[in-house]
Simulated scan of single mutants.
Amino acid sequence: MENTKTVATLNDLLNITNDRIKGFTKVEDKVWDSYSALKVDYDQMVRQSKVMRADLIDLINERGGEVNDSSTVAGALHRGWIDVKNAFSGNNAESTIENVIFGEKAAIDSYQEALQSGNLCPQSTVVVADQHMQLQESYRKFENIEKSVD
Score class of each variant (00 low, 15 high):
residue 145 I to A: 12
residue 59 L to R: 10
residue 144 N to C: 05
residue 97 I to D: 07
residue 61 N to H: 09
residue 83 D to I: 02
residue 128 V to F: 01
residue 110 S to N: 06
residue 58 D to H: 07
residue 99 N to T: 10
residue 132 H to T: 11
residue 148 S to K: 14
residue 58 D to C: 01
residue 78 H to L: 10
residue 124 S to P: 00
residue 125 T to I: 03
residue 148 S to M: 12
residue 119 N to S: 03
residue 96 T to H: 03
residue 125 T to M: 04
residue 69 D to F: 01
residue 122 P to R: 12
residue 49 S to A: 15
residue 63 R to P: 03
residue 126 V to C: 00
residue 125 T to A: 03
residue 63 R to M: 14
residue 112 Q to A: 09
residue 99 N to D: 10
residue 111 Y to V: 01
residue 58 D to V: 05
residue 121 C to L: 15
residue 94 E to N: 03
residue 144 N to D: 14
residue 138 S to F: 06
residue 123 Q to R: 12
residue 70 S to L: 09
residue 79 R to E: 04
residue 148 S to N: 15
residue 120 L to T: 12
residue 61 N to Y: 11
residue 131 Q to D: 09
residue 105 K to V: 08
residue 134 Q to E: 06
residue 68 N to P: 07
residue 127 V to T: 15
residue 126 V to L: 01
residue 76 A to L: 05
residue 69 D to Q: 14
residue 77 L to P: 05
residue 101 I to Y: 03
residue 66 E to Q: 14
residue 143 E to K: 13
residue 117 S to E: 11
residue 114 A to D: 02
residue 62 E to H: 07
residue 55 D to R: 08
residue 72 T to N: 07
residue 109 D to T: 09
residue 78 H to K: 15
residue 60 I to T: 12
residue 51 V to E: 11
residue 108 I to R: 01
residue 148 S to L: 10
residue 83 D to Q: 13
residue 121 C to H: 10
residue 66 E to A: 08
residue 68 N to T: 13
